[in-house]
Design a protein around this nucleic acid. Sequence first.
RNA 1: GUGGGCGUAGCUCAGCUGGUAGAGCACCCGGUUGUGGUCCGGGAUGUCGCGGGUUCGAGCCCCGUCGCUCACCCCA
Length: 415
Amino acid sequence: MKFQAPKGVSEYFPDRSIAFETVRRELIRPAKLAGYKLLELPIFEDTELFTRGVGESTDVVSKEMYTFEDRGGRSITLRPEGTAGVMRAVIEHGLDRGQLPVKVWYSGPYFRAERPQAGRYRQFYQVGIEAIGLDDPAIDAEVIAIASAGYRNLGLRKFRLDITSLGDAASRAAHRIDLVTFIAKLDLDEATRERVKLNPLRIFDDKRDPIIAMLRNAPLLIDYLTKESAAHFVKVKEYLDALGIAYTINPRMVRGLDYYTGTAFEFVHELLGAQSGIGGGGRYDGLMESLGGKNLSGIGFGLGIDRTLLACEAEAIDLTKTSRPDLYVIPLGENAKNFAIKFIDDLRNGGAIVDCAYGDRALKGAMKGADKSGAKYALVIGGSELASGIGELKNMETGVASSVTLSAINSALLK
RNA sequence: GUGGGCGUAGCUCAGCUGGUAGAGCACCCGGUUGUGGUCCGGGAUGUCGCGGGUUCGAGCCCCGUCGCUCACCCCA
């Protein structure tokens, strides 16, 4: 029996794991700069939180959840997305009692039992933020700007931002009547008809050309916005313009989760395959109340770490440089090793990245190790260095070595 | 859940009309005393995904099975 990882999970190991770590850090950074605070939540929750929060009509709930019964007979589900859990925590612990909005960020694994393919995994990673309790369009723009900054920090260029407004309940009710009437006249197959019954908007998600053609003159939700919703959307666009963030209005955009209202957005990368959405989010003004909390509005996003990493790779962005050692130490003999252990520890405590050729390797092999580690400098410590206190610090890039007093080597010198 | 492609050394792959496995990269050792990258020499490595069948003989053919992968669906 040879063990394998479960189907469809993503795993990261060197050197790709270094890039993964960088992606996560850079996507989080703009949120921290904007005052969002970490929320660390469980990866499993009461199943009903998701069926009510995400929506029964979604594929996520109807066929993609990892659900099981725990030993107490409770129905538990591995979280398929982050927002519902945040709402639960905010309501349960009264985080919304202080100043609004509540601004939080979070990151971790999510689970959906889908058939895997490029950029789609059963366990995948996201960075998310939520701003709860403020319906000012400026916060919509802030959330979008934070996501956009994360991608730009990484050096990504070949992506676009799609935005639309799904309006408030009144907007959607008016549109739904006309859309259902329109769809009823179309010649659709059984499966599509069934799918659309629960949420007619999903018809716009169809990728088949004949269907897309049929929808050319379909009524668009964005044309049914109430005065308030329309005004809100106008302000969001103005703020994005002021921020210099380019966007495309996409009135046919469909979000996968039912709780979205008003502003909705998606970041789409040009070089990825079928799974090209690297992040998305929107407003969810009725969610909190529907989960038993106060009637507070909210907006947030989820950014896919796995897909963002794929996007960086597609754009040939190297994210592995940061973790290469500053110094690679090669001790020769037991006395040198005794000295090196403390010498290295001091440098590390000073903030330098230091690796060492332990294991009494031959000098030549150890030098190869230094080379492969990508270290900036190599330092051999043997009998003569111990006796004189002076070593040859070799710059691995230029090949030039210079005499340095060992006691003078510190992290600043190596950086 | 549906469909296509693919499963041979750690990685990428070759293996002609069936005759009991190869390359490159990576790895280890060496090229006369303590300094890497290039070059040269040497070395280790596989139940050819798994099970069954056909055959004197199967990595190659047939059946099944598992897995990976890409796409549909859907989405991060």
